[in-house]
Design a binder for these strands. Structure first.
Lengths: 345, 345
DNA sequence: AAGCACATTCAAAGCGCTTTGGTCAGCACA
DNA sequence: TGTGCTGACCAAAGCGCTTTGAATGTGCTT
């Protein structure tokens, strides 16, 4: 059933039917009701592609999920981020077009999306320190919102990010206040913007108390459970193991916990651990009581916010008058069972 | 830059340019080269929507991610499944249109996708025991492949599934052979097809050795880490705790491991655990050596296979001559460190 | 030299929608 | 009676592509 058929079945023109369905005023009330009823009865729903072609609006947003090159890993945070974003999109009638792609190929994907006009805007995930994609998207004139921030570029683009620097600084100070001096950071890959900011926050927190981090205690890699396990094992095997650790994700933290258990080391007593917690739905950090002391910021909410910014950017491109729309979320520090005073030597 | 402009800039008709780009034979070699070069030079890429409208093919596949109702959880399994599927789609030029939606609303989404003609086919995830969506999609005439199977319907639709029954039967027998008699099953939500099959396999395995499972040892819920933890705690708190457990996912297994650690119970010695392992990229079950004894089947590969079936179904709908295209994958039983002989009472 | 097949190219219709620029009654006003 | 509105509707163009049905030019046959 298409517009033409529907119009014919009603003895009306396509114009009138289209207007009735889209809520234009120049249609008699009675006619509108009749049209609406017929549309429902015939289960009519306008052909998205035709509509998009006619209006120039795709009513779709592109999300590009980077596969960590070579390793081909897909980070579960994207699932929650998208779930959050889709809540917003649903309210506004947008669909999600997903591309999963090796991060070396991303330029091409964005270029394609722009040239093919298949989306009205895109979300840019996991920006690297000097991400080229930001300039590319600006060039292409494709509206976009970055989830996270680059570090070596001016922050003059729309983004939603967590104040990672402040969060990690605060967590570091919290540990130092508990008496810890040797603190390790088990971070994400160092070319990622947030990894850089987390390390900066950590270093700042140490410096604020007159401490300098031991470079040997700064680890960085893809944030898998296996990596957390390996990192913890390495740290515990040192002649002078740290008394506290900061982890960049709950998944890492679970791996670290497993390594600690393997070694008979108890979290919160023998070694303290604070993790960053995206509040992943299948990986909640405890229920009533937090398992890990954690910096918590829901990535799902970030998705919701990013989508809101993007939709606004698309629907009211000029409101901003050149002002970037940005949102810097603060993480909460939640005290759980994985931290305690530094063991006296 | 659109076709018209490109044609004008070359002094050719749209027809010829279109044909040159799409590889039709009736174009002179020299002309084709010229067109291709110009297209590249102008970074021309055909408007997807216009193309879709003209051809009737959307070159897109719909994936519907169910949010567990009320709980609003998004299972990370989908991330890996989609990553796998997208490898296939990429090779064939399809995009993914994603809907994340409460599972009570799914009917509407599929109906919409069909009416709006925005996708050429869909993947149906996590079918329930008597899933209505299968009949719906057949009615709508929208090509689809099911990831998993219903249990109370004839298996006469295209699907990719793991032989969960056999896998769980085998794992159960493996545990019994190690001397275990009291075995628990920590399963996914019981309305899901695979949960039913896993339980069936478990019961069969027990029966094959003349045992009947204790109904109190059959637990089922959303497969989160927290649930795994709670389930294990409950089991261990019993006066007659099981000596072995089957878990329906590594995420559950990690939660169970945590609970075991909390209680000072050691896996593989005090209690044995076999888990189903989707081989999630951020959640690998160990590296060189498996952490958990596990039934492993990569969900990513399942995604790849499902996408292949679907693309084939779309592009050659009649080859099958009514035969359903189905793929039943077998899970490997991988022996790790979480199983051992039953402790002698 | 006429006729024909073949290789190239093109104009125009059509996909299903929105939107511009009308038309046509009916009514009030002078 | 004629003019000007206004409310309700419609025909047709246009979005950017594919595809049908012709047209054109070329070389070969007879």
């Amino acid at each position: 059933m298409n517009l033409k058929d529907l119009a014919a079945s009603l003895g009306l023109s396509q114009t009138t039917v289209s207007r009735a369905l889209n809520g234009y005023p120049e249609v008699a009330q009675a006619t509108r009701q009749r049209v609406l009823a017929a549309a429902r009865a015939h289960n009519y729903s306008p052909n998205t592609r035709a509509k998009a072609l006619a209006t120039g609006r795709a009513m779709a947003i592109g999300h590009v999920i980077p596969l960590a090159t070579s390793t081909e890993l897909v980070n579960p945070v994207f699932a929650d981020f998208i779930a959050g974003a889709s809540e917003t999109y649903m309210r506004h009638g947008y669909d999600i077009v997903l591309s999963v792609i090796g991060d070396d190929d991303e330029d091409r994907v964005y270029r394609d999306m722009a040239a093919k006009r298949m989306v009205d805007g895109v979300i840019l995930q996991s920006p690297t320190t000097d991400d080229r994609r930001i300039a590319l998207l600006r060039d292409l004139g494709l509206p976009f919102v970055v989830h996270g921030r680059a570090t070596d570029l001016p922050d003059d683009y729309p983004y939603v990010d967590v104040n990672n620097r402040r969060a990690f600084k605060r967590a570091t100070e919290f540990l130092i206040d508990l008496g810890h001096r040797r603190i390790a950071l088990v971070n994400g890959r160092s070319q990622l913007g947030y990894a850089v900011r987390r390390q900066a926050g950590f270093v700042e927190g140490m410096a604020a108390r007159g401490l300098t981090p031991d470079p040997d205690l700064l680890l960085a890699d893809e944030m898998t459970e296996g990596y957390g396990h390996a990192a913890m094992r390495t740290l515990l095997a040192r002649p002078d193991p740290p008394t506290a650790v900061l982890a960049a994700s709950t998944i890492i933290a679970f791996g670290m916990r497993r390594a600690a258990d393997d070694a008979g080391v108890r979290l919160g007593r023998d070694i303290s651990l604070i993790t960053y917690d995206d509040d992943l739905s299948y990986f909640r950090n405890g229920g009533a009581e937090a398992v890990f002391t954690a910096l918590r910021s829901s990535v799902r909410m970030a998705g919701r916010r990013a989508a809101e910014l993007l939709v606004d950017l698309i629907e009211r491109p000029h409101d901003a008058a050149g002002l970037p729309r940005q949102d810097l979320l603060e993480a909460e520090l939640i005290v759980g069972r994985s931290t305690g005073p530094a063991p006296s030597a």
